[in-house]
């Protein structure tokens, strides 16, 4: 490939993406704090899976793989979506300390920057996800799904990408560290306003209402189904996942244009 073709639109796009992703991932390995997004999910997981096992024996609780597995899926999704949020924090940091300006100057195709952050976020999600999984197996989680597990991985990746794009968009719009809570709070709410402790059927009152309109509920339920080897709502779950990714791609690109206009 010659220099000319590389500076063409597609070449530039991927070259920029790889460069940004490479730098981000390198940063992770330099600093073990990159596992921080896994911290809270791990705490919640240990507290809920360890302390609330008895909930699994409530009449009507019919999740086949057991309470630990039930909680694991939620913790895993929390870890990867918070990983996306943390990528948003680091983008906001890049804008605040001026590093983003250098990226914007150097990148022939700036949309590549967004893709680069997404790739790096996926890399992080793989690592934090592994961490949560290992802990779950140590605690004694049983896995009953076979090939269905690929479905779980697919949903987890979609959740990570959607959260990353959402965070990247907010970060590029605000361009200060103040973006932190604005990214974190909605993700947290979406995670908690769902059937966290018991299946949707066992919820009642306002939480049932909110959880049943929360798109994350479908993804969570389907992901739990994959783990138990009893897939359910596969099409709606992937449909929602892909739709979220598309919406947040547009959102991130809109934010990128705003950042370009602001001259970052």
């Amino acid at each position: 490939m010659t220099a000319q073709t590389r500076s063409g639109s597609t070449g530039g796009f991927f070259a920029v993406a790889w460069a940004v992703a490479g730098r981000q991932t390198y940063k992770y390995f330099r600093n073990p704090a990159f596992l921080a997004p896994a911290l809270f999910p791990l705490f919640f997981f240990v507290a809920f899976a360890g302390g609330l096992t008895r909930i699994g024996s409530v009449p009507g609780f019919d999740y086949a793989a057991g309470y630990t597995a039930f909680q694991f899926v939620w913790a895993l999704l929390q870890a990867v979506t918070m990983g996306g949020a943390f990528t948003g924090f680091s983008i906001a940091g890049d804008f605040e300390n001026g590093f983003a300006r250098r990226l914007m100057l150097a990148a022939s195709n700036r949309r590549g920057i967004v893709l680069g952050y997404v790739i790096a976020s996926i890399a992080r999600a793989v690592m934090t996800g592994t961490l949560v999984t290992v802990l779950a197996l140590v605690i004694g989680m049983r896995i009953s799904g076979g090939y269905d597990l690929f479905g779980l991985v697919g949903l987890v990746l979609l959740a990570n990408i959607a959260a990353t794009l959402f965070g990247a968009g907010v970060a590029m719009l605000m361009r200060t560290q103040q973006a932190g809570p604005v990214i974190r709070t909605p993700i947290f709410l979406v995670l908690f306003l769902a059937p966290v402790f018991v299946p949707l059927r066992l919820l009642n009152g306002w939480l049932e209402t909110v959880a049943s309109i929360n798109p994350f509920t479908t993804i969570l339920g389907s992901a739990r189904g994959f783990l138990a080897g009893q897939p359910q709502n596969v099409l709606p779950a992937f449909g929602i996942g892909v739709a979220l990714v598309i919406v947040f791609v547009l959102w991130a690109l809109f934010a990128l244009r705003r950042a370009e206009k602001a001259g970052s």
Binding site: L52, R54, I55, S57, V58, P59, G60, F61, F192, L193, P195, V196, F197, V198, L202, L203, N204, G205, W206, L207
Partner: peptide, 14 residues
């Protein structure tokens, strides 16, 4: 409190 109390209300049936 709101989320926990509601989400775990099934626990009272243990």
């Amino acid at each position: 409190f709101a989320i926990n109390a509601n989400g775990l209300s099934a626990a009272s049936r243990i």
